[in-house]
Design a protein around this nucleic acid. Structure first.
Lengths: 336, 336
DNA sequence: GGCTACGATGACAGCGCTATCATTAGATGA
DNA sequence: TCATCTAATGATAGCGCTGTCATCGTAGCC
């Protein structure tokens, strides 16, 4: 256990009072250059590092930025996390995160855990907090960014994109490519998934080709095997389905493998479109069309907005739409 | 900002002194049942939650368990993280994590960040710390668990498996299946990757079929597209290669897609074996052989060991080998 | 009955830092 | 020259909790 060096020891070494050291560290411009130099020398000589707990207690404020995400294994959220981390790594802030497991109740209680630490800022995924959680956020007393989505009535700031519109664009792409009997594969029907489904449905209905029987969904978590299972189920019921919009890329990959097993040519017999545009979509054979979302950027922007607010700079607009774009690839080149 | 309820207020409400409330909360068996009941009632009535910063300052110990992993997006580490999280979510401990980006220097400095918080415990990935980091860990003054690997000379506790042996087993499997000209694909040649390569090499040499020209590696990060590129490169140089052991599943998936593009039948013309056994391996077409490692369990055990130590229970053996096993699937059914 | 032993509770101080206000020295101007 | 102001620094107190020791009351024992 390295012995702790206190402010007072640094002060003694530098021949000033502790409070001056504190100031020199936090607002260097308020102490005379030569005093500061002496203090800096003492700090490095003794290897002083501030005690975050003591600071938190004295200021009633910690340097923790809390992040609430539904899952630690879903690539979508880990990409956002990376973005956050990237912009906070060199700062005085620490990231602490909580996993909600897609459960609003868990989110609510984790929010309590974070709040009692008086966090410097809060980043939460989505816009579907419970009423109680919403109330907690409203009174958080720190910058709050909702990520992943945009919607009306932000708690504070928001950076994301419209899942509805992104799914609608993907559906339009399928239709434009000539597919006329598109289906939908979805797992873990969380609020974002539902909005994507709504986007698919709206666009399919507008084209007069929506068929509820071509929508294969499950509440269980999403993975590649599930994509295969869902496609199999869908094709058993509606063998003439000529394309599928998959709620995410894992499902799309599973659908591709299942199509191979069933001897359905992609894209000739079956068009496949994913969502999120993970790296593997581009590398697949055939390469799979997907909807690119800017996940890393989302986290990065959220972190930047919080930092800007905390450092008194201009955080820019409170609502940032990062958009999305369909990455058209061979898997949706059109029916043969 | 929800106003903070202090211990003193709870004490007043319950008609006892603050210190008794403190005791009732931390070691309930040391206060009389009825006193405790009164205190509990006051706590719930006022919605009291302890201030972690004040506690940390008073005890010189925080409830933070620090986790150091190389990457937040690599499924391997997020699975470990999930395991840790799973066993700590309901406890008084908070997880705080740092990303080393596979850089020993970053690991060292992050270690400093954690240590100054006087963490309750530390979990670090791997056994390849710098000398300075090693020294810090030795003096950490808290339980330390190294995860992902096992090796000689643990800092404190260790839970993992032998990457060398796991790779050797996979290689033996390829040979047993009849492949005689196996190659190796590797990206991001970190220490674990190198040990896996060593395992492959040892086994191939033992069989008298090692060929350095069949080893295609790169220092750049691993992904599916890279798997495809590496296989292409390998086959250009050694077209008669009849199997590949891929350093991870992303590479294996990329290799599968590339084989499809090149018209090489898997497993007849080319056997493919991955590493980690991510879910998608089972769902692929053909299903891909891979080496199962117990990542979630690894995190879970690490967390349990730390908790046991902190709670004065028996943490069990300090070195836990979780092993690994080859999951044989169609992709290595043997050459045609 | 008087003593010890022990369990339950409380008083006090202090963890390391910072907010607040006070003080000092130096600069400015009539 | 003296009053006035400003910048730099210091003294004091306290953030909310817990370690340590003191105190009190009661059971147990001869």
């Amino acid at each position: 256990m390295a012995k702790r060096v206190t402010l007072a020891e640094v002060a003694a070494q530098a021949g000033v009072s502790p409070i001056t050291v504190s100031r020199a560290l936090r607002r260097p411009d308020t102490v005379q250059p030569e005093t500061r130099a002496r203090i800096d020398a003492a700090v490095t000589a003794l290897g002083y590092v501030p005690d975050p707990a003591a600071r938190a207690l004295a200021t009633g404020r910690s340097d923790v930025i809390g992040v609430l995400i539904p899952s630690a294994t879903n690539a979508v959220f880990t990409d956002v996390l990376s973005g956050i981390y990237d912009r906070l790594a060199e700062s005085r802030f620490d990231v602490q995160y909580g996993i909600t497991r897609y459960d609003p109740g868990t989110e609510e209680s984790l929010l309590g855990v974070f709040l009692r630490q008086r966090p410097a800022g809060l980043i939460v995924a989505g816009i579907d907090q419970t009423a109680a959680a919403r109330r907690l956020l409203d009174r958080a007393g720190c910058p709050v960014v909702q990520v992943m989505e945009i919607g009306a009535d932000p708690v504070d700031m928001m950076v994301g994109f419209s899942h509805h519109d992104a799914a609608a664009a993907a559906t339009r792409h399928l239709i434009a490519q000539g597919y006329r009997r598109p289906g939908f594969l979805g797992a873990r029907m969380d609020p974002r998934t539902r909005r994507r489904f709504a986007g698919f449905r709206a666009e399919a209905e507008a084209a007069g080709i929506f068929d509820a029987d071509r929508c294969e969904t499950t509440e269980t978590p999403s993975n590649v095997g599930m994509g295969a299972a869902l496609l199999r189920g869908l094709l058993e019921r509606r063998p003439d389905t000529d394309a599928v919009f998959c709620n995410n890329d894992d499902l799309a990959l599973g659908a591709l493998f299942e199509a191979m097993r069933l001897g359905r040519a992609v894209p000739g017999d079956l068009g496949i479109c994913g969502f999120n545009d993970l790296e593997m979509m581009r590398a697949a054979e055939p390469p799979i069309t997907s909807v690119r979302t800017n996940r890393f950027e989302m986290g990065a922007r959220a972190a930047e907005m919080i930092r800007a607010r905390l450092e008194g700079k201009d955080p820019g607009p409170a609502l940032v739409d990062l958009g999305s774009e369909v990455q058209a690839r061979r898997s949706t080149e059109g029916p043969s």
